[in-house]
Design a protein around this nucleic acid. Sequence first.
DNA 1: CCAAAAGTGTTTCCGTTACACCCATGG
DNA 2: CCATGGGTGTAACGGAAACACTTTTGG
Lengths: 234, 234
Amino acid sequence: MKRYPHTSRILVALDCIVFGFDGSQLKVLLIKRNFAPEKGKWSLLGGFLDHDEDMNDAGNRILYELTGLKNIYFEELKTFSGVNRDKVERTISVCHFALINIHAHNPDAVKSKNAYWYTLQSLPDLIFDHREMVDLALQKLRYKAALHPIGFELLPPQFTLPQLQKLYEAIYNEKLDRRNFSRKIISTHLLIDTGQKNEGGQTKKAILYALDKHKYQKQFNAFHYFISGFGTSA
Amino acid sequence: MKRYPHTSRILVALDCIVFGFDGSQLKVLLIKRNFAPEKGKWSLLGGFLDHDEDMNDAGNRILYELTGLKNIYFEELKTFSGVNRDKVERTISVCHFALINIHAHNPDAVKSKNAYWYTLQSLPDLIFDHREMVDLALQKLRYKAALHPIGFELLPPQFTLPQLQKLYEAIYNEKLDRRNFSRKIISTHLLIDTGQKNEGGQTKKAILYALDKHKYQKQFNAFHYFISGFGTSA
DNA sequence: CCAAAAGTGTTTCCGTTACACCCATGG
DNA sequence: CCATGGGTGTAACGGAAACACTTTTGG
């Protein structure tokens, strides 16, 4: 096999912040690391890029192994390339974040990997630069969710407006006006009224909506303030 | 030296789309490649990541070698990781884009590297996936320039409002209303009136402004429609 | 029939847009 | 003095924000 006359071949890792939403809080999936270095410490989901796969393949493989899910929304964030970020061997990590429906993952796979959901307020110490990655991912999620209809990825296929609102309130850690929120979301025409109502509430049942996937795809890159009022000050 | 029991060590390249603005058109800097494969074809500015440097070091090194400039604005775009993107050897490329004042670069360094400025309308065929990189960079530039005061990086330290307007018109390929543009820019309070006027015009001389670097730093991440009306439809 | 949460309507306000006039400069 | 381009002002419009009432449900 031909090679370039250049010797700096480097291990390439992929790390991923997996976000979930349990109905009231935003959470991230962390793993108790079972190999050296830092064995027993908490880390993000990750793995090495193999020779026969691109980053997308690797991301799907790694996410599938942990969650049992395919076709997860995930997006590249940044490459972490500090020379000494891994003490064992020079490794660069292409950091990603993923958004999943927290109720859809395979609990056995998660348990067998020693993975747990943590709220953002109660994160344990993380290995390497993983804390920095989480902070960046949250920042990016806030940025992107204000401009693109990305939040739906964190919800079940059918959801109510109050659920969606609670999600945005968790992302931005701010209360929203129910009436303006409703009008804003409905005006995007991204939601389809399923005709059903949610179960289990002790009060008025809310309408269950489903995402209009076709319009979602079409509008996704038409960036505009999806939720206005966010991101405009801080 | 310790190593992970994993064999997929990979060449890591850094490629960079260098944008410039000549007063009327947006341009990118391309290089006639002087080594195999694809020797003699046009490519983006790039190089390999060395063992003793992080991505930031490598970017600064590569940009300095070509332009003679330091402290250039550059930003990571995306990692291109296709298995066969380079025929010689598996190489992933962390793609960046840079914004420079086109009049400040070192012309001798550029010439000695066989580099030339091309307008976006007249790009030659590019090697590998570099064309895809350019398209993505332009898309990102348009996105970002609508939300953040990034355009100033393409202008000299002192510039006029008409110059700035022509820059945005070049970026978005759209005509703007002079009066609304002026009001919008002035309202950001990012510009300092230098008290000077530009030279060389045959008509009324325009006010030369300088960027208020302090406010620029502070406001940079406070994303909001820096230029409204863009990015809201397409 | 009451508490709690869901759904809908209206007014106010502010930023964006569209458009018109005056000023400076060189020829 | 005239053509060209630069600087400023204003009215109309539209979307966002603030705010109130009605409806449904279970207990």
